[in-house]
Write a protein that binds this DNA or RNA. Sequence first.
DNA 1: AATGAATGAGTGTTCATTCAT
DNA 2: CATGAATGAACACTCATTCAT
Lengths: 206, 206, 206, 206
Amino acid sequence: MANVEYLFASKREQTKLANRLAILDAAREVFGEIGFEAATVRDIVRRSGLSVGAFYNYYRSKEEVFEALADDGARRFRPILEAQSAKARDFESYLRAAVGAYFDFVAGEHAAWLAKSKDAGMLSQARGTPEILAVFDEVRRVFADVMARDLSGGVDIEFLAASCIAVAREIGDRMVERTPLDTGAATDFVVNLIMGGVPNLPRMKG
Amino acid sequence: MANVEYLFASKREQTKLANRLAILDAAREVFGEIGFEAATVRDIVRRSGLSVGAFYNYYRSKEEVFEALADDGARRFRPILEAQSAKARDFESYLRAAVGAYFDFVAGEHAAWLAKSKDAGMLSQARGTPEILAVFDEVRRVFADVMARDLSGGVDIEFLAASCIAVAREIGDRMVERTPLDTGAATDFVVNLIMGGVPNLPRMKG
Amino acid sequence: MANVEYLFASKREQTKLANRLAILDAAREVFGEIGFEAATVRDIVRRSGLSVGAFYNYYRSKEEVFEALADDGARRFRPILEAQSAKARDFESYLRAAVGAYFDFVAGEHAAWLAKSKDAGMLSQARGTPEILAVFDEVRRVFADVMARDLSGGVDIEFLAASCIAVAREIGDRMVERTPLDTGAATDFVVNLIMGGVPNLPRMKG
Amino acid sequence: MANVEYLFASKREQTKLANRLAILDAAREVFGEIGFEAATVRDIVRRSGLSVGAFYNYYRSKEEVFEALADDGARRFRPILEAQSAKARDFESYLRAAVGAYFDFVAGEHAAWLAKSKDAGMLSQARGTPEILAVFDEVRRVFADVMARDLSGGVDIEFLAASCIAVAREIGDRMVERTPLDTGAATDFVVNLIMGGVPNLPRMKG
DNA sequence: AATGAATGAGTGTTCATTCAT
DNA sequence: CATGAATGAACACTCATTCAT
């Protein structure tokens, strides 16, 4: 009897987890396809295969789902970032680590999304995804920290951080649209631009 | 009789113009504060002080107001851009012209907005404004043209253009938050960063 | 001076009449084309070339215009009906007179309408026109009177009157759709059907 | 468990059915009273006692409700018509069958309506009801078929069919206003009129 | 009188959220 | 817990009517 109840409870836990994931997956897709503003709870519910009521058992609103996705993204990103930052010692290597980690994450998200939506003719994706947004904030913080620490006198750190972030974001978006997806090249581009400007940019062959 | 008619028409025309402006002003604020998607016709109407019906006497939809604002912005921007581009001959000077024009426009908009909203505790502004968006597209086009024309082989023009635009936009947003508002410094920052990277950045005193 | 004023007033009267007619004409067309329910005051105003305000100077509502058209129709119909009824002495001749008058009126209206809308690809017309409706009521009254007077005992006068009217209306509608428009044949059909049923119907050649 | 689920589903299904009927009933009344054009979704909703949202859970628009009512009427009418037509062999018997079936249907609808609206001081009813309209179209088709098949040369079939239909409709409307409601008498009247005209009409006693 | 812009109640419809089952 | 129908506020938009000019 105890066993039965235990298993029952376990089954319940499993279901709860599965539902939670179903909602998150559905929401990620919907947000990616039509954007957070345009997305309705009904869109998410429809896609998740659950009932409206179930949705509200797990999340109180569209916003809460958004945050859950964002948190999830940030949580998954942190180890990537730490791995890349491990042996960075100067500004350039930190920059490379952060940008590289960001691009790796974006590429991973994009691949997951490609794998899932094999057939459907989809729309924008990527930019608006809550995970990317959250990860982006993470990168922003890192940049600011690194610059405040490693960059000696006189340069406008707020402006520089903002610029780096903007470039990373923009190039990240462009990168996933290209085939083959080359995070290395993208990282090189960003780092070289920031470190040496146009004359320093990598030259493409052909 | 002629006088009467003249005054008659005149008063009416004045009111119409005032209403049109009231709608545009209200819409600009609303779009700037909560974004185009989230904004409702009723938000604009409420803010403008007019009635729903009046709104539809002037514009057929939210979209049409947006476009009116965007067109207006683009139209006002063009002379500024042309003035700055007049004697530009190489990539750097074009870049400086475009970025400078953009920053001048943004600064102008921001000043107008400051003058108007003396009291109200406002939100984001600027970024989402249809005018800025439209002007931004203009700048984007210019960048792409200039790079395609002036930049010799091998650099990734799409990436570079995207980066320049992203930086310009980001710095533009940051610039208007600072006091005193210094478009020259902002322009220098952007151009120096793009042309020579971090080592090339202007040093701040103090 | 008196002369001037007189002419001025006269001109005013003329204008007033012209406006009234413009509204009625416009309304007739609009009602005929899209029906009374669907028609809006704005439709009528637009078609009449007058201003909204002017419309309300002459009529208080769509309904009032409808009634004006109906009255006008009834007024124009009465002499036609009287002419045809002049020498009728028995039920059949009264029936023929009333139906004939009705068909003549309908044919006249249809011709006027054809002449006006030379080019535009129009819709239904006829049935819904306020004039026809009003004239129809006139015919209804005549039928009821004649039957009450001329038909000796036992037949269900209410049913018979209703039937005659229904047939007249239906055939009137069909008649104007045919080319050439033949009021005589239509009248014969109705009268023969009512007086003798199917066996009594006129035979068509060919 | 099974029981619970069964009852659960059952209760829900019952409510859904009841609501669907409430909407249809309300719509029938509203359409009957003020006509399809003038009727608004809110009128129907108000009368049904449900909420606006509930209406849209069941039907996508006013049009859809109308069609549902019309389909229902046509579906209920068909067996009546078929029963009456079963042994008809010539024009007169077909005419009698169709008219009789139509009158039976109209009488049934009227009875149902009387039973329901015991107290409310209602308006026109019947004529505009989607069911009656739909059934009427059915009758129209039958008439046209029968005449095209059974009526030998020369008579104007279009005019005749239109006349029969018009008479049937008109007498149907009048019939339900009389007490006692006598479909047999009404049918006799119509058939006799069509087959032999005024001289052939049944004589009333008294 | 004539004008046509202003008004706001009213339309069809959607949607987040609740809650009986 | 899951379900999905019910709710009603909100939306974009229309229109009869008024009224300053």
